[in-house]
Write a protein that binds this DNA or RNA. Structure first.
Length: 131
RNA sequence: GGAGUAGGCCAGACAGUCGCUGUGUCAUCAGGCACAGAGGAAAGUCCGGGCUCCACAGGGCAGAGCGCCAGGUAACACCUGGGAGGUGCGAACCUACGGAAAGUGCAGCAGAGAGAAGACCGCCUAAGUCGAGGCAGUGUCCUCGGACACUACUGAGGCCGGUAAGGGUGAAAGGGUGCGGUAAGAGCGCACCGCGUCGGUGGUAACAUUCGGCGGCAAGGUAAACCCCGCUUGGAGCAAGAUCAAAUAGGGAAGCAUUGCCGUGGCCCACGGUGCUUCCGGGUAGAUCGCUAGAACUGCAUGGUGACAUGCUUUCCAGAUGAAUGACUGUCCACGACAGAACCCGGCUUACGGCCCACUCCCACU
């Protein structure tokens, strides 16, 4: 996908494969969040709790719930959100709505660790949905 | 070189790739292109404003805040300059800095006594009183040596007192030093110093005073204890507030329909409820505005000790809303601290990496 024309073509045909992150790919309304919280599957490790649920559109959507209680400083909250977004953008996922929540102490971990952790979680979700 | 004081500045840089938000522009759409995109503290939310809504005839009380003087400012508890007091060898820094003679309260331990104070040790015996003893005179008695009584003088010592010099206690004992004075002492008197006060002088003023007079001179500390005096002061906040506005339930008006059904009633009329349609009002979810052109910024000039002001000039400089401002790679260096806008400004406070300049003290060398 190094060739730009090829990239564009692919993006047009299938948002799933894209590396963009537009508004459509986010959970925006509280209804959407509620839907995921009410009924979901979950995966996780010591950094993250990730809820997911099949959605009605044909691409994955991401939402984040970063509680002030869990991550105290505003700088760290921003950092985690960026990390998650970036990772989500690069990861390949089935058509599910996802809500990512950090755990206590996640802010102390290095960016490399967190990225590794996240991509592992994405593939687990993909695997489960594939079955 | 070390230790310190004050002021100012910066907030990794460059290139490439992939993203996000806004604006502009092109495009039917998809999207393309261009430009812009966190801080000095964006933080704490501690003050002061703007802005918005609510309340309000006017005045007072209560409550809250402030408190040397002058200036700056939209305003301030901020800033600048000055005064006073204090800290430091010094450069410098610190100060909630009105009133203690309006009243009330508070002060552990020690100490005799802690607020118009006090006599524990010490000092003194002048006044008052008791008075061993001494000496003189007179009288009486006699063993002629004296004894006793009275009076006057003197008088060790005691009592009652005097005394705030000295010792001792304490953070603090009601100006200090010296001389006079005294029974011993004491502002009791005087000199000098200090203090208070009145006047003069200087200063816009706080205040100063190497000027003059007067007062013996204090009823101390604490007001971030109550309090008194003076000045200021409505309340809530952008989730303020404004506009548009589904769905559902309910409200109002008009029309239609059956002149249907139910209720009031013996029956008709009538009235109320029930059905449908349209409109209105309210306003929830949601959306839009508020939302960034401003007590703005850049540079210069002028005035001012300065904070700052005035004039000209330059620029448009985040505006998100489940919340953008990032990730990766490479190169270089001092190897990157504290930390993320949420209506906007002016301050204060706290956190923190580095650099520059000026000044002070100490050490060493020449």
């Amino acid at each position: 996908m190094s060739h730009p024309d090829k990239y564009k073509q692919q993006q047009r045909s299938d948002l799933r494969q894209s590396r963009c992150f537009t508004r459509e790919q986010r959970l925006v309304e509280s209804e959407q969040f509620k839907r995921v919280f009410e009924c979901n599957d979950r995966v996780g490790d010591r950094y993250w709790t990730i809820l997911y649920r099949d959605n009605t559109v044909d691409f994955a959507r991401l939402g984040m719930a970063v509680a002030k209680k869990r991550v105290k400083r505003s700088v760290d909250r921003s950092r985690l959100k960026r990390l998650v977004r970036e990772s989500f953008r690069h990861g390949e996922l089935p058509c599910v709505d996802i809500v990512v929540m950090p755990r206590d102490g996640t802010a102390k971990a290095s960016s490399l660790e967190l990225q590794a952790s996240l991509s592992k979680q994405w593939s687990r979700i993909a695997e489960r949905c594939g079955r």
